[in-house]
Nucleic acid binder design. Sequence first.
DNA 1: ATAAAGCTTCCAGCGGCAGGAAGGTCAACG
DNA 2: CGTTGACCTTCCTGCCGCTGGAAGCTTTAT
Lengths: 134, 134
Amino acid sequence: MNISDVSAASGLPPKTIRYYEEIGLIRPARSTNGYRDFSEADGHKLAFLGRARSLGFSIEDCRILLSLYEDRSRASADVKAVASEHMNRINRKIEELAAMRDTLGDLVKRCKGNDRPDCPIIDDLSGRRSVANG
Amino acid sequence: MNISDVSAASGLPPKTIRYYEEIGLIRPARSTNGYRDFSEADGHKLAFLGRARSLGFSIEDCRILLSLYEDRSRASADVKAVASEHMNRINRKIEELAAMRDTLGDLVKRCKGNDRPDCPIIDDLSGRRSVANG
DNA sequence: ATAAAGCTTCCAGCGGCAGGAAGGTCAACG
DNA sequence: CGTTGACCTTCCTGCCGCTGGAAGCTTTAT
């Protein structure tokens, strides 16, 4: 399998696949012409990586998950630990973003959005903070 | 005002303040010894930037907001447009993260987390997807 | 006089790729 | 057999928004 084949199969761009090799996530064989020669197992790993990345796992998480994927004597507790920690990070991020959204939503709602210059958004950003309707 | 003074006043690290000058967000004066000499207005701009960044606005958004902040004949509609668009991006991001969290939460819940290798998380990532309790 | 603190510039690196240049290789067509 | 064009390779740069560190100046305190 050439890179474009495994790219189509995994959904990952060739650039990404080369990058994953560069950082040691995969180690595809080489043909005599120097082309990468991907095995089925490489394809599976790449699909695994694509899925893990789409769930927001970092590359370092992926490295761990991939090693657990390949370790037939793994403990599911180890997998669960990585996933749980990642989920906690996501939840923290969501809360952070939700707080921003709430503040922004309040400011946007209070801004008349007309051709006049007075604006609660600018007031807030410049430190002249006020409460809603205050 | 030296950089450490305005840093303490605005809460932004000196490195960040230098960076903001480098990309043209602020233009502090210079003393004869080459040190940056920050005015009150510079301090206000930096506080403004810090607050805008903490609400998740991109640097380019900040550039626009700063120009609106300084434009006394601005239309609040222009401010509102920037803020609304940013809020929409945040909401999309939240939905994206919430989808990840939901999937992860399901997988984590279904993983026994013991010393055995069988693991719904690994199964999902490797393409052997199954529905909850399936 | 000296040491410490604070300032300056410049360069490198983070994560996770993407874009592009320069060049080798391969399959198809005439 | 030559040529075109698609595909492959490596290498370098850039994105965002800083952060860390080196090397060298100035100022302040002792």
